[in-house]
Write a protein that binds this DNA or RNA. Structure first.
Lengths: 239, 239
DNA sequence: CCACTGAACATGTCTGAACAGGTGCAGACC
DNA sequence: GGTCTGCACCTGTTCAGACATGTTCAGTGG
């Protein structure tokens, strides 16, 4: 289906501004043109512009202030950090580093079926995060669609060494998703990667995130050292 | 400060309708009067009514459908279940029961300080949930403000045997909050209540929820058997 | 140089109106 | 009895306009 599908004016304006913001112009922190100027630019009423801006605010891309204007709040941080949902290192001042232990294209029909996908090819990206003195504290196994720069990543590397940036480069912006959290005993392979004994208990999360239109962005299994990680989230309210 | 503080029309309408919905009229599932009828009732324009209805939809109290009308979705379920955030029993068809192991008024200046409260009196309500054949699977320790029917609960019991219903009876409706999730080794008291060995690993959550105006609704520490519970949440999107 | 004021900008709220599209139902017709 | 149609309801979208409130800054007076 062509992306020129008919859409209402305020949504079209929101999409246009979203594309410009993601493209970096205006940049994070910059002020958008005022409502009147945007109304002139798009040839619509001020109220239609306000609806579009309200959508962008809803998505966490901008913030407006009465009497001041609208400011870009969008940056390249993953969605869940922007929505008050974070896994935080429980200790302060701890420096960590991440190393990739696997990055290859795989076929996983089972996962494709569970995610409702036709294409069963994924980029498998497994990374271990460790404290600088060497103690591994988490293992994250991401499965993302093997499209564009994601598909080229095993050869070319990630864009800016960042999975989120590579997803964005592939046009995959997370809008919504779901996550499950439980506890898991490490198997032998996981234990070896994490420098622990098999059977040790870790926090386990499975996250699936999707674009505004419902396309898969990523499916990520994470194992988190419970002594080091705490999951924090905010819920409800106007956002 | 008087609750007759000046507020804008659409918010006043939203609050009035919210009060009516919480009062059970119209009931869950029932259809609200149409936009035009509400505009006549409140003596405002249809657009002002639409803004009020949008706020209620944002809060998860109603859902509107084009051509059909607005329907009440609010019920007495706790906020987090209504917002796609649930801790789910990992097994199917398991019947559980809950027993109260502690319900008394306490003073906890430390907790009051952490929650930014002047009053350090709380209702302490600790409950163990167990599978019908006796195996305890969770311990929940709630600390709620000792006001109205909450303060009377040790003597009179909870409204409808439900903490949430008693909170609502006290005028405390959760609008937003935060939750932390990690892993905890049971201490001796917890282990005894849960029929486990001290040191056993449980999922641990701490939830603080507040009203629209920021008043404390509840602070709850939960210990969840990781073999029985999985936490699921949805994030992002238009709600 | 500082404080104040007023003007010019911004967003927020509200109005009445018009039109588009969705839904349900009564009545007519086969 | 079933199907179709048209009408009357509903919500969704957009408009132009008016007014309220918030913010910023240039200009003026002390």
């Amino acid at each position: 289906m062509s992306e020129q599908v008919q859409t209402v004016k305020h949504r079209h304006i929101a999409e246009t501004l979203a594309r410009e913001i993601r493209g970096g112009s205006p940049a994070n922190g910059a002020k958008l043109p005022g409502e009147h100027a945007l109304a002139v630019r798009f040839g619509v009423s001020r109220n239609t512009v306000r609806q579009a801006l309200a959508e962008l605010a809803q998505r966490g891309m901008i913030a407006t202030e009465s009497g001041k204007g609208s400011f870009v709040t969008f940056d390249d941080r993953p969605l869940d950090q922007r929505l008050g949902w974070a896994r935080a290192l429980a200790g302060q001042g701890v420096t960590t580093g991440t190393r990739t232990v696997r990055m290859e294209l795989i076929r996983d029909p089972g996962l494709a079926a569970r995610l409702g996908l036709d294409d069963d090819e994924f980029l498998a990206l497994d990374r271990v995060r460790a404290i600088v003195d060497g103690q591994p504290i988490s293992l994250e196994c991401a499965r993302v669609p093997a499209v564009g720069p994601l598909r080229a990543a095993p050869r070319d590397g990630l864009v800016g060494d960042s999975l989120t940036a590579t997803l964005h480069a592939a046009g995959r912006y997370a809008d919504h998703g779901e996550e499950r959290i439980d506890v898991l005993a490490l198997n032998e392979e996981q234990a070896e990667l994490l420098g622990r004994a098999p059977g040790d208990t870790f926090l386990h999360t499975q996250r699936i995130s999707r674009t505004l239109r419902g396309e898969l962005v990523e499916h990520t299994d994470s194992l988190l050292d419970p002594a080091r990680f705490q999951i924090r989230l905010q819920f409800g309210g106007q956002q």
